[in-house]
Amino acid sequence: MSRSAALSSFIDSTPPGELADVTKAIKSILGDDSVQNELSPAFEKYNEDQLATVKLPGGSGEVVVSAHNALGDGRYYDVESQSSFAFDHATQKASGVQSYVLESNHSDLVKSLVKSLGTHASEHYPKASLGVYPIEDDSQIAIHTVANKYSPSNYWNGRWRSSYIYNPSSGSIAGTIKVDVHYYEDGNVRLITDKKVDLKVGGSANASEVVRQIANAEKKYQEDLNKAFGSLSEGAFKQLRRQLPVTRQKVEWDKISGYRLGQDIGGGRSR
């Protein structure tokens, strides 16, 4: 694999909130600060895929960076604050804020979606950033929700991302929900999930109907995910290693050769 492919794969695999740490490590490993330029395409892809969030100078909340609100030349726009901004993919900082008025046949729908999604998000995400953008020549609408919680002092970081493409004429809503959790105290544990979602609303559905469908799917997914933790713990994890032997006794190491002679160790083998 080429050098740049290897470096890109590192950036691609960066956990939530740790891009600066990964970049710093790469520079030190290569003994080369100028690698930053080489990493630019990987940074851009990472930030757009991961729905990087950024606080605009003078703004209140954080806005989303994605492939769907890119204006080119490193600029992106936000519907709610009606502004566009330059985004530095290496430092994840915004600058050069200008006013931006959305021009779309769906601009009313987009604004109602932003409002409905905001109401839903405030009820279920302690801290989330949202993005609703017309795409594909105004034929479809991209709907993004991203929630991050970073706790590096406790060695964990997490991200929930959901992205949907809503087609107003057919009523189809297709998307994915992705969860990424990193825990790294005396180790490195990662949860990565990816769930496809396919929903449908009526042809003349309003914004709140669209958001209601999305809200139901996300609730169902979180419930299923919680159940999955339980079944992995009770299933595969227990099958890998018992907490105690079938006898409920720890091994008597002083008599270990006796276990052999008696052939009495195969307690659970017949299953």
Binding site: H124, P126, W156, W160, Y183, V189, Q222, F237
Partner: peptide, 28 residues
Amino acid sequence: LKMRNLLQEVYFGKAKDVVGDLRSIPPL
């Protein structure tokens, strides 16, 4: 024994808690 308990806690407890910190099933 100690590590199995720790893994249980981190893999099925901590990971689930973090997901719960990101998103709440009951309305906030």
